[in-house]
Design a protein around this nucleic acid. Structure first.
Lengths: 223, 223, 223, 223
DNA sequence: TATGAATGAGGATTCATTCAT
DNA sequence: TATGAATGAATCCTCATTCAT
């Protein structure tokens, strides 16, 4: 392996273990000793690749956002009408969460962590620009739907926001309850029906979407 | 002032300053030195009232939850039909947030903080029971609406969940953006329209609710 | 109950609970909150009776020493010759330990605790004077034995010291092992034979004392 | 100096200063700030070498026990008969105490300190195993003496215990008195005669050992 | 470039003692 | 006289960051 390859490999392994640890413990509680150990490098080496704990955190976040964006973009193009394209986005998003729950964990964490105040302005802007990119995708789908007469004229930015917030907060909430071992409703139907409900609210012909009937409270317990 | 009054006063002031500090810094970063100083008591005094940092945190959370619940309950009874009662809840909730934004901050914080893992089981159960109480109120309104034929038959627990998640996540998200000084859309219309959109999605006669037309992007900057 | 009686009662109860706590935890670790609680008085009340933690500790020690001395003195007078009188002392001492192990604990503790450096000179002198009083009793018995020709001429002060040290260290050592749950030999025969062995060493006619033969190692486990 | 040498040097210096401080103040009162300062390292450095205050304490104890055992073992092999070999052990033990009084201090301290309850079981077992090793040496000498007909048949384990306790408690007691500046008898003759007295008590021909006559009370004052 | 030993500021918690009621 | 709330110094331990090797 060449020197450059070795360096890239080290960087990759550091990011990988940082993701694990930040995911599990959050920014404040995460311990760089453990990150270094998991990555198989010395603690000092971390500082050759990242300027500080915050910098490393941001790098992890950035990588996640990039992965997300590409995925969402692709999903948004599958389907012949707004409702189907939105379902596609929702399904991909959900599937990705199932595969990589920790990506999401960190993804949200940044909103709540108290580090924020200490991150450089540029970093914050970068993070929020990622959010906006994703929002743009959803917005585009809605806008197309309104243009084609499938959706009622409405504030598509607002609805895009609502859809994002619903999706994220349902998953996040389920996540939290699982971690805390609190009883909770099965996530997948809850999540998909939430999207359907909102979409039904802006359809010109709401009857196109049949909402599911009341279900008995099938609870789920954390594994 | 009698001794007992002084004691109650001390406790109140400690809770008050703890709320401020936990709100601003989160559990991990919050510094008990500062809490004591703001409360005008000695550091050791904190430990006469609360067994530990975590215990103090829980006390703050509990107080907030109690306040919330009473408010929501009252609001849910104002209005003649499900849509109006839901609007009432939403409005009260929003108004309360305007008055006491820090209450909400902490309210949500518990979902993300890494303390959770270290809190005793009983405390976690207590906190989630508060959430369930609030959810029950919303669920009751929806159930009434379905019974009266105003709403389509649907899984009212799911919809109640969705409404809660939407409301909370919009406010929380706005909050976060404000703190980070990220440009954002005006919260109030976004928030109310989100509720309307979801309600419209389960109305037997969707046309009863007119969604707002597209708005130019009036941005807001954090004060 | 008169006011004076009440005061005496309080003092007694404080000393009692202090003894328990100091016994169990040692001076440094002992907690005056617990002492007050066990005594059924307020923490501040302790300071009406004793000037400081150290002062209270000394009061407990003093009371124990007094009790010991009276006992030893009486025991030393039972028996017709030096060997029997010494056996009597040893037996009483041992019996008293069985009844009041915590008295002994504190009794010895003062030799090892790190408080010493902080106790006032007068207090230290007082404590050591108690030891000397006890030593005097033993010495008196030996001196009588030498005078009567029962014991060989020897340095009776030295032998008295040795006897005391043997007795105390065997009991203390057993005590420690019990607390630590370390296997140990049965104390009583070990203790009595030790006294016999030393006495045999200064007898004019050593054959008067038959030493016990080797015993199988009957171990004892802490209860 | 290489990095490894420096590391060893740091460890050595920490142990050294820890010994001093633990000796002087006991476990509870000992202050790690001072240990670090005396060792010329930062406070945090202590924790690179030892996991906790207790761990450091145990390390000091362990090192002392090792040193003792090797010494005692060697001494027990010098001499042609049981009495002489026992004198050899006693003399070496005493000499070592003169050279390294603080080793002994800590050596005994562990029996009285209240830390014990908090030390892990394995550590306690290790510490007591050291005691047993030393006891074995003494026992071996006595057993040889009985076999050769030099000593009367007796419970050699008991006598070994007594000899150890006598030796230790005399030294410890002298130590304590010195620290407290209490007048005391010269230790060396007291100590050696105590051993002689006990040995005389188990000799087949007691007259082989002449006990010293009464001495005027030559007192010693702490330096 | 990588290492890992050293750093030292920072923070939670304890508890003997004081003093206003 | 008794109380018990308040105090705040004391201290163990953590961990992000630095820098000599």
């Amino acid at each position: 392996m060449s020197r450059d390859e070795k360096k890239a490999e080290s960087r990759r392994r550091i990011l990988e273990s940082a993701r694990e640890v930040f995911f599990r413990d959050g920014f404040m509680k995460a311990n760089l000793d453990e990150v270094a150990e998991k990555a198989g490098v010395a603690k000092g080496t971390l500082y050759r690749y990242f300027e500080s704990k915050a910098d490393l955190y941001v790098a992890v976040l950035t990588r996640n956002h990039e992965i997300f964006h590409d995925l969402i973009k692709a999903a948004s193009e599958q389907g012949d009408n707004a409702v189907d394209r939105m379902r596609s986005i929702a399904r991909f998003y959900f599937a990705h969460w199932l595969d990589h729950p920790d990506y999401f964990q960190i993804f949200w964490a940044v909103d709540n962590e108290s580090v924020i105040g200490e991150l450089p302005r540029a970093v914050i802007d970068q993070i929020s620009s990622f959010w906006e990119l994703n929002l743009n995708v959803t917005h585009g789908v809605l806008e197309d739907g309104v243009s084609s007469g499938e959706l009622v004229p409405c504030d598509t930015w607002e609805v895009a926001n609502v859809l994002w917030e619903v999706a994220n907060s349902l998953i996040e909430s389920d996540n939290t309850k699982a971690r805390r071992q609190i009883r909770r409703r099965p996530l997948e139907p809850l999540y998909m029906h939430a999207i359907e409900t909102v979409m039904r609210g802006i359809l010109v012909e709401p009857t196109r979407i049949q909402l599911s009937p009341a279900q008995p409270m099938r609870e789920t317990r954390a594994s």
